[in-house]
Every structure is written in structure tokens, then in C-alpha cells.
Design a protein around this nucleic acid. Structure first.
Lengths: 177, 177
DNA sequence: ACAACCATGTAAGTAGTTACATGATTTA
DNA sequence: TAAATCATGTAACTACTTACATGGTTGT
């Protein structure tokens, strides 16, 4: 159950409205834990009911806009969750299932989709590298927080690099026929 | 929606009962798409209702045991699914959320759980490497199917190697204080 | 006035998890 | 005959997705 804690983290970094959170999720934290605006609104209501955040209407904002802030109880809960032991969720990779299926019934036209996906991996990689160049390259004496944020970004880069290689490896095997 | 197709693949490799499938899922395909026996029984009933598999009672087996086989329509559906274009599911990594939270509110005792997880990654890695040594090392002239299966296994090895490194990297940052 | 956008939400459905239930067969 | 194991299921719940609804604000 990471979404409530992802929201708490994001709100600690900057108090926001639901839609602002949804938009920030399309970048930063959302790269590792995505959520739609429906999920976010529902979860914000739960966080408020639990006494972890408080909201107030924004007077100069449009319509029903509300600003959410983390309360002390919310920060406590976030700390509890960060320190709690939890097993990693088992790997779920649909493409591995497709590759085993192709091994059983192939040859198929799986290659077309693999090429499309290679392009997607390259695009994500370019995005991550641009963020790294902008925020982290050439800056020394970084704080603990910055080093951790850099590590998270490098995880994304390694992940995409690895899956790009796997995709190209699969294409090489399929093209051999 | 990969579970029905993972089951079709596994049943193509060998016709089985629900429990046998559940057990095979703890090894092989289950490394990439895990499922409990409850899910598997429910899904087998759906596959049969859709006319993709057929089942018959096993006379010498115990109790209500049934053997499931893939029908021609099921094989067709599997081929359709393998060839269909589908975007990769967005990355979901709870630990990345925890690392960002720790960057915001740290220091915490996250390190204890990171060490526990490093051990889990090492154990998975040892399992995968043992399978690789048993099934793939030193065998040449492998078929297309064997090459694909090896690629799937190597993906698992790369994945665990990478997350082990990330975990150790996070520990190095946290231990600096 | 009207389109485009901002902001929050409801409703319905699917996938997956957790806990429990049932009966049959083998083994000690 | 009791315990362990095999085999299949039901029930209740949570997380997530997809489609749609509602009303306010800004720009033309």
C-alpha cells in the first residue's frame, strides 16, 4: 500500500491540491508509482479522515480547489512505514510471459511489438538522462537527500537500459529465422 | 491481463490439474507472473467457459482432480495475444517511494530493511544461477525456444543483480551518517 | 455567448489478496 | 483412527482502471 505514503511524501515536499499532485505524479514520484486523479482524490479523502493531512479551500483558486498539508500524525505514519520491513513485491513482467509463449508456439509476429517497445524504452531513457543532466551532473557536495534522489533516478536509468537490452536480445533471437 | 495466457502457455507445455499448475507457478513462469491457487482455479473455470481449454476428471487421481488441456481456439487466442501491441505497464517500485520519503524526513532506520532485502536478492540470484547452470550452461546448438527461455532467465538474473546493486548503493548513502 | 480548461468527483467493473471451507486419500 | 496431505473451491476485501458527470473560471 504505497499510494498514501507516496502522497504524504509529495505533500511534504510541497503542500498542493489534488490536481497539482496528479500532475506532479506524471513526473517525479509517478515514474515509480503512478496514479490517476481519481485514485488521488479518493486517497486524499482517506488521508484526511485518518487525520494524517488537513485541507483548506484556496480563496484565490478556481472553483472547489483545496490545499492539502501534512499533519504531525501523517509525518509519524510516514516514518513508521519507511522503517517497516516489507518483502519486495514479486516481479510482474508480461513480456516474459509472451516470450515463453512464443517459445512454445512460435514463430509469431512478436518482433513488431518488440521494436515498438525498444523505441519506448529509448524515449524514457532520454527523459531520465535529461533530468539527470539538469539536476545532478556536475554538482558536488550534495546532501544525503540529493544523493538518495539521484539514486532513485539512476534506478530508473538502469531499469530502462536493462529492458532495452533485453528487448534487443529478444529481437536478435527472433530475427535469426 | 496476462494470467489466462500464462496458464495457456503452461498448459501447452504440459496438460495439468489446477494444483499442479499452482506448483509449477512457484518455479518457472511464476517468477515473472505469480498467482495463488484461488486465482488459478477461478481463471481455469473462465478459460473453460470461453472454450479455450477442456477438462476431464482424472480417474486414478485423488478426489475431484481434473486434467486441463488447451483447445485449438485457446492456441489461436494465445497467438493473437502474443502478437498484439501492448504498452509496458508503468514501473511500480515501493522501495523507490520509501527512498524518496527517507530523503524528505530522514535519517530513519530504513537501513535494517535494506540489509534484509539485499539477502533476499542474493538468494533469488543464487536460485536463478543454479537453474542456468543446470539447464543452459555448456549446451550449444540450442533451438529458438531454448534461446528464448534462456533470455527470460537471464532477465531474472539481470533484474536481481541490478536491484542488489541499488540496495547496496542505498545502504552506502545511509551509512555515511 | 461559447469553447477550452480547471478541479473534483461518482459509478461500475476487473485483478489480485487473504482467510476460510470442504471432502477425499494416504500415512503413521 | 487420527494426522497429514491432496485437491478444489467460496467469501469478503482492497487496489486499480475506465468511463462518465458536474460545475466553476478564463479567454475569445
Amino acid at each position: 500500500m504505497s499510494l498514501p505514503h507516496a502522497l504524504l511524501t509529495s505533500l511534504l515536499e510541497r503542500p498542493s491540491s489534488g490536481l497539482e499532485l496528479a500532475r506532479r505524479f506524471d513526473r517525479s514520484i509517478g515514474f515509480f508509482w503512478s496514479a490517476t486523479h481519481q485514485q488521488i482524490y479518493r486517497e486524499l479523502a482517506r488521508l484526511e479522515a485518518a487525520g494524517w493531512v488537513a485541507s483548506s479551500p484556496v480563496v484565490d483558486g478556481r472553483g472547489r480547489k483545496r490545499l492539502y498539508k501534512v499533519l504531525a500524525k501523517g509525518k509519524q505514519e510516514l516514518r513508521r512505514w519507511v522503517e517497516a520491513a516489507e518483502d519486495p513485491r514479486p516481479l510482474r513482467d508480461e513480456m516474459m510471459v509472451r516470450l515463453r509463449a512464443e517459445a512454445a508456439i512460435g514463430p509469431t509476429r512478436l518482433g513488431r511489438d518488440l521494436e515498438r517497445r525498444a523505441a519506448l524504452h529509448r524515449a524514457k531513457l532520454a527523459t531520465y538522462r535529461a533530468i539527470e543532466a539538469r539536476d545532478f551532473v556536475g554538482k558536488k557536495l550534495s546532501t544525503r537527500g540529493q544523493q538518495l534522489q539521484h539514486l532513485v533516478l539512476r534506478t530508473g536509468i538502469l531499469h530502462e537500459t536493462m529492458y532495452l537490452e533485453i528487448t534487443l536480445g529478444a529481437l536478435a533471437i527472433l530475427d535469426r529465422d
